[in-house]
Write a protein that binds this DNA or RNA. Structure first.
Lengths: 110, 110
DNA sequence: AATCTTAGTTACATAAAGTAAGTGATAAAG
DNA sequence: CTTTATCACTTACTTTATGTAACTAAGATT
C-alpha cells in the first residue's frame, strides 16, 4: 500500500499556512508596515508571546522584514517582503471561496 | 485607534485553513473518496484521534461527506462535497506560490 | 471460544498557546 | 533625582491541543 507523497515545496507552504495565526498575521500585514502593538491589537486573542514567536518565524522564512527606527522610544516596523506580498492572490482565492461557500449564522436579535 | 475588521466569511475560511491538519486532510481527499485508515496513513504524524475530530468538524462544516457501506467489516468512506471540491483553485494558488518562493534545503549527501 | 478486521474511543503524557507580570532603554513629569 | 510612561518584547505559570498506545464494538473466520 503506497502513500500519497506531497511535493515538499507545497507541503512547506501548507505548513506555513496551517500554523495558528500565521495566515492572519500575513494577511494583516498586506495593508502595509505595522508595529508590534498594532498587529497585536488587530488580531483579537493573539497574545504578544505568540506574536513574537510568529514574527521571528516569518522573518526566518523571508516572508516579513523587521525594520528598526532608533527613535525614542524605539519604533519597530514589520512589513511583507516580496515573498510575503506574493500571498495576495492566495488570499483572493480564500476570499472568493468564502464568499461563495461560507454561510453566516443568523445574527441573534436582542 | 480603530481595529482592522475582517470580513466574517473570510475569517471563517481562514480559521478552517489555519487549523492544524485540516488543509492537509482536505487536500488529500481531492484525489477521491478514502477510508479512515488510508487518510491516516497518507498523512505522517497525524493521529487517529485528531483525524477523527477533524473529520467530524469538516463534516459539520459541509466540506466532506461520510458514507457508510454496511459490508463486513463495515466500510466507511469520506469524500469532498462541492464545497470541499471548491478548494481546488486555492490549492492551485498555494502550489504556485510554493513553486515560485519555497527554497528547498540542499539534500544532505551521505 | 479465540482471532481478525475496520473505525473509531479512552486514558495518559507532552507540546503549544494563553495570561499576566516583569525587563531594559529612554524620556518626560513632579 | 525619583516616579511614571512608552515600546517591544520575556518569563513564569496555567490551560488547551495534540500525540501515543491501549482498548472497544460488531460481525466474520478458524
Amino acid at each position: 500500500m503506497e502513500q500519497s507523497q506531497l511535493c515538499p515545496r507545497f507541503e512547506k507552504a501548507l505548513e506555513i499556512l496551517s500554523k495558528r495565526w500565521t495566515a492572519k498575521i500575513v494577511y494583516q500585514l498586506q495593508s502595509g508596515p505595522q508595529r508590534f502593538v498594532w498587529i497585536e491589537n488587530s488580531l483579537p486573542n493573539l497574545s504578544g508571546k505568540v506574536l513574537s514567536e510568529r514574527l521571528k518565524e516569518l522573518e526566518a522564512e523571508g516572508i516579513i522584514q523587521r525594520d528598526v527606527y532608533p527613535e525614542t522610544p524605539v519604533r519597530i516596523e514589520y512589513q511583507l517582503t516580496d515573498k510575503g506580498k506574493a500571498f495576495a492572490p492566495l488570499f483572493k482565492e480564500i476570499s472568493s471561496w468564502a464568499e461563495q461557500w461560507v454561510e453566516l449564522p443568523p445574527t441573534p436579535e436582542e
